[in-house]
């Protein structure tokens, strides 16, 4: 056993096949796992939107558009760029509505607990 190996045992992601992925860092935002094989399991009967650049399957066209924008931003064609921006806009709106509900829920939780503490 060498010192280097002892050190390598300790480094997360340094085990054999993952060594390259670890040095590259998690730059594949929104693209799913690094290697494609076995990582996906699309149902046979459903619609599959496959990425033309890397082959990853998505359940919805908007998700594919978002994936292309995040993972392949330097290679996009103009319609793909437009689709990404449109999907991103739509998602931002949905996200705002979700966050509004989340904030409401936090406040509700807080006051419910406050009341329970007051009663107990």
């Amino acid at each position: 056993m060498s010192e280097r190996d002892a050190a390598a045992e300790d480094v997360p992601g340094r085990s054999e096949q993952e060594a390259t992925a670890a040095t590259a860092g998690p730059t594949h935002v929104g693209t799913g796992p690094g290697p494609l094989e076995g990582g996906f399991d699309p149902p046979a009967s459903a619609d599959v939107f496959e990425c033309g650049y890397c082959g990853r399957p998505f359940a919805e066209e908007d998700l594919l558009a978002l994936h292309r924008g995040h993972a392949h931003s330097d290679q996009l064609s103009e319609p793909e760029q437009a689709a990404f921006e449109a999907a991103y806009e739509t998602e931002t709106g949905e996200m705002r509505r979700f966050q509004l509900k989340a904030a409401g829920l936090v406040v509700l939780l807080y006051f419910l607990l406050l009341m329970v503490y007051a009663l107990v």
């Binding site: 998690p26 594949h28 935002v29 929104g30 693209t31 799913g32 796992p33 998505f58 908007d62 998700l63 594919l64 978002l66 994936h67 924008g69 995040h70 993972a71 998602e91 949905e94 996200m95 979700f98």
Partner: peptide
């Protein structure tokens, strides 16, 4: 989740 999924709401 943000590393895995392209959609923000999807990640949540």
């Amino acid at each position: 989740a943000y590393d895995l999924f392209p959609g923000r709401l999807q990640a949540v």
